[in-house]
């Protein structure tokens, strides 16, 4: 009898120590989950931050990781629409599929920018009906998005809800303080971006953006568009155009040649295998590039 009771206590203890296995689509989200889940979670990101999360593929190793997950956290807002639904369905894991307790879309808690109005169709390019999904470049928005992580973790592990809440408050405060601190270092500047993935960064720090080089999201700009935006950039004394490594070289060079504006190639996500490896480091890198 004593042996059985001992075994039962041991089982309960092991269960209590079991961590929630969280898989995220991006390293940025992984950091949010680590901050809120603390010691009660193990977290791994499917993407390393160097890929374009919209064009990623439903790789079998992603399916395997999701198969073993208790929670899957994504940016949502259709950013991962091309591959994540396929990964979720092929995982055979009901917990993390839409409707499951471990399904977590951070974008649900975020008030988005560039939300289209009126008729929405693909003649507008790669438009996201719920708004611009690249909110990870605003620390304050990332703080907001942590609300979804808090909900899901608290639902799966109610015994540690108060700890998750405390962690979330701390994380949210840290993000707001980071944004305020970095904002104070920047003056008024006029900037541009290649694709609308730095919009939240510009918005967070009060930078004046004259728009994106892409006329329509996801569609490479025509020669006429590049020329037109180069004129606008010159006229508005744009300091810098932000682009990522995925931006076509020829377009970047042509714009620089026509406008005289420096194009800076910077990461738009936290990186798993190289710097910047944290949200703070990424924000500082972006801010420093303006100074």
């Amino acid at each position: 009898m004593k042996l059985r009771l001992g075994a039962l206590i041991l089982l309960v203890s092991v269960d209590a120590l079991a961590k929630i296995n969280v898989v995220t689509t991006l390293p940025d989200i992984a950091e949010v989950v680590r901050a809120i889940g603390g010691d009660h979670v193990t977290v791994q990101s499917l993407l390393s931050g160097s890929e374009d999360p919209h064009y990623a593929e439903a790789r079998p190793d992603f399916i395997l990781k999701v198969n073993k997950a208790d929670v899957v956290c994504s940016m949502g807002l259709d950013l991962e629409i091309g591959w994540l639904p396929k990964v979720l369905s092929k995982s055979g894991n009901a917990r993390v599929q839409p409707g499951g307790k471990g399904y977590c879309e951070l974008g649900r808690s975020v008030e988005t920018l560039n939300k289209p109005t009126g008729r929405i169709d693909r003649s507008l390019g790669d438009v996201h009906a719920h708004g611009n999904p690249h909110f990870n470049l605003s620390p304050r928005k990332l703080g907001e998005s942590g609300g979804e992580v808090l909900k899901v973790l608290s639902s799966l592990d109610p015994a540690n809800k108060s700890e998750f809440e405390a962690n979330y408050s701390k994380f949210d405060k840290t993000m707001n303080e980071l944004e305020a601190q970095l904002k104070s270092q920047l003056g008024k500047m006029t900037v541009m971006e290649y694709h609308q993935e730095f919009t939240y960064f510009f918005n967070a720090y009060g930078l004046n953006s004259v728009g994106s080089l892409e006329e329509k999201p996801g569609v490479p700009p025509s020669a006429a568009r590049i020329a037109k935006m180069a004129q606008i950039a010159k006229k508005n004394k744009v300091s810098v155009l932000y682009a990522t490594a995925a931006t076509p070289h020829k377009i970047r060079e042509r714009f620089e040649e026509l406008s005289g504006v420096k194009v800076k190639t910077l990461p738009s996500y936290v990186q798993s295998h190289q710097d910047p490896k944290t949200i703070e480091a990424l924000q500082k890198l972006l801010v420093e590039s303006l100074q």
Partner: peptide, 9 residues
Amino acid sequence: SSKLIPSSR
């Protein structure tokens, strides 16, 4: 269905 039987579809 990929929800009825664990790890299966």
